[in-house]
Design a protein around this nucleic acid. Structure first.
Length: 320
DNA sequence: AGTTGTGATTCAGTTACTTCA
DNA sequence: TATGAAGTAACTGAATCACAA
């Protein structure tokens, strides 16, 4: 699956990879320059982590874990990432552990009594946490309601306790989808119905996705603003050079400044620097310095873990 | 091997309830 | 105290997959 945000008038080339990309494509030979921003899906390191985790599990859990893993394999968490092509490679973004990148905002951070529990390594099997049961009565009532098959009654909305939410949050950080066993374990531990756990995870996934979308939009907005700014700067530069009549690269003037700016640093297809495509512009060229680096402000923030449903990954184009 | 029905699971979208300013 | 907004638990319907007949 690949979501593409395209700025430009020609379609982005189809790609089979799962690497997060936000690529300024250099189409054509000096003309029809376009900027294509691709919202890609990158595979997460979580698979690896999970493999490591299962390898250390006691044997009695292994069977279930195999099921879980099989489940996980088919639902391997992939992260919806959005990279900035103008960033140095070191600013590769979208890693699950990239809380430090961007604004360092992590949607999975939850505050419990003022302390962030993010990063705590918790698992449903490792936490001896006793969760206060706040709504046992409510739960019973709800069950009664369920059993009695009441259809038209006002639904009763429970409020999860802080502890329950924190525990679910931690579980979500480890795996944002649940196997049936995990679901029932969690439900048992939290004294909730499996359906409640299931719903909580559904809603949590939805929230994560929503927040990620918001951040992506904000990021793209800033990125485009920056491009426009650089475009203006290059236009000024071209004008100055023309005025001086000393342009050392005759073809430079034929290039749309924006196109040049978006392709000057890295070619999306070969990762070569500008010199590869513009041999005349080399380190020996004294006049035109490469455009100034884009501020690291644009290191893309990332919410994780963020998964794309297997259904969506299977679908080439998202429906609904 | 291909088709069909069923159950399970996920999602997007929505509703309804709770909390808080 | 009343009220609107925000957050979120719960619901609905559609899509998809695995599996058995």
């Amino acid at each position: 699956m690949e979501l593409e945000l395209s700025l430009g008038d020609s379609p982005a080339p189809a790609k089979g990879n799962l690497t997060p990309v936000l690529t300024p494509t250099h189409a054509g030979k000096g003309e029809d320059h376009e900027l294509v921003l691709e919202l890609g899906v990158g595979t997460s390191k979580r698979i690896e982590q999970d493999n490591q985790k299962t390898s250390t599990q006691p044997e009695d859990v292994q069977d279930q874990e195999e099921d879980d893993e099989a489940c996980f394999r088919s639902k391997s968490p992939v992260e919806l990432s959005l990279g900035c092509p103008l960033l140095p490679a070191s600013a590769e973004i979208g890693s699950v552990n990239s809380e430090e990148c961007g604004r360092g905002f992590h949607v999975n951070t939850v505050l419990v009594d003022g302390d962030a529990v993010q990063g705590r390594s918790l698992s449903t099997s490792s936490l001896p946490m006793e969760v206060p049961v706040r709504q046992a009565a409510d739960e019973e009532a709800a069950e009664d309601e369920e059993n009695s098959g009441v259809g038209g009654g006002a639904r009763k909305k429970l409020r999860l306790s802080k502890e329950q939410s924190a525990f679910l949050e931690d579980s979500f950080k480890e795996h944002n989808t649940l196997s049936p066993k995990q679901k029932s374990d969690l439900a048992k531990r939290l004294n909730l119905r499996p359906r409640q756990v299931e719903v909580w995870f559904q809603n949590r996934r939805a929230r994560t996705k929503l927040k990620q979308t918001e951040v992506d939009c904000e990021y793209l907005k800033r990125f485009c603003e920056n491009l426009a700014q650089e475009n203006r700067r290059l236009h000024r530069e071209v004008a100055e050079l023309r005025a001086l009549g000393t342009t050392p690269y005759p073809f430079y003037g034929h290039l749309p400044a924006a196109g040049f700016s978006s392709t000057a640093r890295v070619c999306s297809s070969c990762d070569n620097k500008v010199a590869a495509h513009y041999p005349a512009i080399t380190s020996t060229s004294p006049v035109v310095a490469p455009p100034s680096p884009v501020p690291t402000l644009f290191a893309r923030p990332h919410f994780g873990p963020f998964t794309v449903h297997p259904v969506l990954r299977r679908q080439p184009s998202a429906t609904s």
